[in-house]
Amino acid sequence: MLFLPRPPGPSTFTVRVESAPLPRPGSSRSRRPDALGTAHQWTANDPTALAERAARDLRMLLPRLTGGR
């Protein structure tokens, strides 16, 4: 067997944001096993572009948490 170094390839970076189960009206959080949550995921080869894209999208998705800027 001949083992050669793996050729360098592009790195892929990932950002993933998940929420807890969404609460029902009048409760602080859901304890139901069938409660819904949400997840958002971004991938890119450039970590700087990835961070900018994820930050922009999160500001649009969650304006109250980010100050709406």
Rank of each mutant, 00 (worst) to 15 (best):
M1W: 11
F3G: 02
L4H: 09
P5S: 00
P5D: 04
P5M: 11
R6L: 15
P7Q: 05
P8C: 05
G9M: 03
G9F: 04
G9D: 12
G9N: 09
P10R: 12
T12Q: 10
T12A: 15
F13M: 03
F13A: 00
T14S: 09
V15C: 08
V15F: 06
R16P: 14
V17Q: 06
E18S: 11
S19V: 13
P21Q: 03
P21F: 05
L22V: 06
L22E: 06
P23W: 06
R24P: 08
R24I: 01
R24Q: 10
G26D: 00
S28R: 07
S28L: 15
R29V: 08
R29F: 15
S30W: 08
S30Y: 07
R31Q: 12
R32F: 09
R32Q: 15
R32T: 03
P33G: 07
P33H: 04
P33E: 01
P33M: 05
P33I: 03
P33Q: 00
D34E: 13
D34H: 08
L36A: 08
L36C: 05
G37M: 07
G37Y: 01
T38I: 07
H40M: 10
H40C: 03
Q41H: 10
W42N: 10
T43A: 09
T43Q: 12
T43H: 15
T43G: 10
A44P: 09
D46T: 01
P47Q: 01
P47G: 00
P47A: 07
T48G: 04
T48A: 13
T48F: 08
T48Q: 14
L50G: 05
L50V: 01
A51W: 05
A51V: 03
A51C: 05
A51P: 05
E52N: 09
E52Y: 12
R53P: 08
A54D: 10
A55L: 14
R56N: 08
D57V: 04
D57L: 02
M60N: 04
M60Y: 14
L61M: 13
L61G: 11
L62V: 03
L62K: 03
L62W: 12
P63D: 06
P63T: 04
R64F: 13
L65N: 04
L65Y: 12
L65W: 14
T66N: 12
T66C: 07
G67A: 10
G68M: 14
G68A: 15
R69T: 03
R69W: 13
R69V: 06
